[in-house]
Design a protein around this nucleic acid. Structure first.
Lengths: 103, 103
DNA sequence: TCCATAGTTCCAAAATATTCGAACTATGGA
DNA sequence: TCCATAGTTCGAATATTTTGGAACTATGGA
């Protein structure tokens, strides 16, 4: 099974997480993932934008260390790296998640 | 005494706060303000950049609702809007502040 | 093998941000 | 009134992001 590269938690910077969360589309993706509490495909997380735009946002979420994507057959399964981020930046992501109101 | 306009807390968006905190210079300013726990002038918060650059960053911090600036004579006194932001987005800013390590 | 599906990558255009010098404003003190 | 100080605003150059169409890759199923 192919793998996608993700940053190790040690190299994740808080400013990168802040940046990733500064876009409403990405905040919404993160909110959906948190609410679902399970892996979701890009298709499920689609926000009515072109695929290439969505792919761009997922790329930034991955690079920031917020989202992990594993490939499963035709689909890419995305999940929040909540536990790791909570350990490195306690309280930050969990507090953000509590304030997200999905559209 | 002249006043500078700030957004009411009702109009402060979490994504704007995230954006403001996505720049290391602005994160540092916020860290200094939090650590000091008092009003600080732009001069005290200077990061060795041109005045116009610093002014730009303060503008973004104000627009995001993170920083309040009052004019006192020749100086501008900046402070964190910590209590207001904590009330609207409980735990977010306080958690961020705990992870800031000043250079 | 052929095709549809799920996403990514590539590319270029448009929009936003950042930087910093120069000019400007307001204040307080000599 | 003149000057230095503290910051903002303006403007232009540069850099970074965002957007989306088109082409591409990998997979599973017919």
């Amino acid at each position: 099974m192919r793998q996608i590269k993700h940053p190790a938690i040690e190299q994740v910077e808080l400013t990168d997480i802040m940046y990733a969360l500064s876009d409403p589309a990405r905040m919404e993706i993160v909110g959906h993932l948190a609410q679902a509490g399970r892996q979701m495909t890009c298709g499920e997380l689609d926000l009515n934008r072109p695929k290439s735009s969505m792919s761009h946002h997922f790329k930034i979420l991955r690079a920031a260390g917020l989202v992990e994507t594993v490939i499963d057959g035709k689909e890419h399964l995305n999940s929040l790296r909540l536990a790791e981020i909570e350990q490195k930046f306690p309280g930050v992501l969990s507090a953000v998640l509590k304030t997200i109101k999905l559209p």
